[in-house]
């Protein structure tokens, strides 16, 4: 081997060595890269697994919530059912209670009134005028209480009665009731307007009770008006006729309108206008028995207006019937 050849060999050798070093370096780099990649993949996998787990948990949670809602709904329905039954039973109890109470209360009243009268008639020479006045007061109270009891009983009867629908002529009933009131108070002059031919399907007895009570009120609360006027008209309320009875009497404050239909609640004192406060409670029950609604509006000194329907309107159907 000559010098030239040797030099060549040395260079080649050197080149190989450099290449080898480079290769080894690259290899090292590659290993490092691979390692990094693997690490990253592992990281990603872990985070993916984590979100997967989270998702699963969320789904489970949502299912649980849905289940809970379903259960609550069922429970609610059950509770409503139970409550309805309870209310129905309570209502029945209340009715039989009202009946027996009214019967039991009337008997002592007959004694109170009866013996007061007996004293007035049999011992009149022994009782002075003051004593007699007291006895008259006792009698008046006894009779007033008897009236309250009768009213209470009538109210409970409205609920127990079976409902039968028939064509009823509201115009005619109104005229008859007002005629009767006129006969009872011949001195009164009341201007009447009764829209003709108002007929509807309703329970005749209950409708008479409704009209009687609203019209008696209109009659009573216009007794101090200078030019009393009472009207019956029909308005249309969605698909249903709505009957409107309006007067121009004493009226009432709308602030207390909620009290109007509650038994024994009165907006006028006994000194102003006499009454027991049961009339409109009866009206409301009778109207509700028909599935209808009743409402009132008024203004002090200007009159009152009562509106009622005799069955559910489209918008009421499916809606709750409040009592």
């Amino acid at each position: 081997m000559n010098q030239q050849e040797r030099d060549q060999m040395d260079r080649a050798q050197l080149q190989i060595e450099t290449l080898t070093t480079e290769l080894m370096e690259t290899q090292r780099g590659l290993t490092a890269l691979t390692f990094e990649l693997e690490e990253r993949v592992a990281e990603r996998t872990a985070s993916l697994r984590e979100s997967n787990q989270k998702l699963k948990e969320e789904v489970a949670e949502r299912e649980k919530a849905e289940e809970e809602v379903r259960r609550l709904n069922e429970e609610l329905e059950l509770r409503v059912d139970r409550r309805t039954h309870e209310l129905e039973a309570a209502n029945r109890d209340l009715d039989s209670f009202a009946y027996s109470v009214s019967h039991d209360l009337r008997a002592p009243l007959r004694s109170i009134d009866g013996f007061s009268l007996a004293l007035l008639e049999d011992c009149s020479d022994k009782i002075d005028d003051m004593g007699k006045d007291y006895l008259h007061r006792i009698r008046r109270s006894a009779q007033r209480m008897a009236q309250l009891i009768d009213d209470l009983l009538q109210l409970s009867r409205i609920v127990r009665r079976e409902l039968t629908r028939q064509p009823v002529n509201l115009s005619r009933e109104t005229r008859e009731i007002l005629c009767h009131l006129q006969e009872q108070n011949p001195e009164r002059k009341v201007e009447l307007f009764i829209e003709e031919g108002l007929t509807d399907e309703a329970d005749p007895t209950l409708i008479r009770v409704v009209l009687q009570n609203i019209l008696e009120n209109a009659w009573k609360y216009t007794s101090k008006a200078t030019q009393a006027r009472i009207e019956l008209r029909k308005e249309n309320h969605e698909d249903r006729p709505m009957y409107v009875i309006r007067d121009n009497g004493a009226g009432f404050s709308m602030a207390y309108v909620d009290k109007l239909f509650v038994p024994f609640q009165r907006l006028h004192s006994d000194d102003e206008f006499e009454g027991t406060g049961i009339g409109l409670a009866i009206v409301r029950r009778a109207i509700h028995r028909h599935g209808g609604t009743v409402s009132a509006s008024g203004k002090i000194g200007e009159g009152a207006c009562f509106r009622f329907t005799l069955g559910p309107s489209v918008s009421d159907v499916g809606g709750a019937q409040c009592e």
């Binding site: 009243l109 007959r110 009134d113 009866g114 009698r139 008897a146």
Partner: peptide, 8 residues
């Protein structure tokens, strides 16, 4: 039975 004893 009337409650009013006059009537009764």
């Amino acid at each position: 039975k009337p409650v009013d004893s006059t009537e009764y």
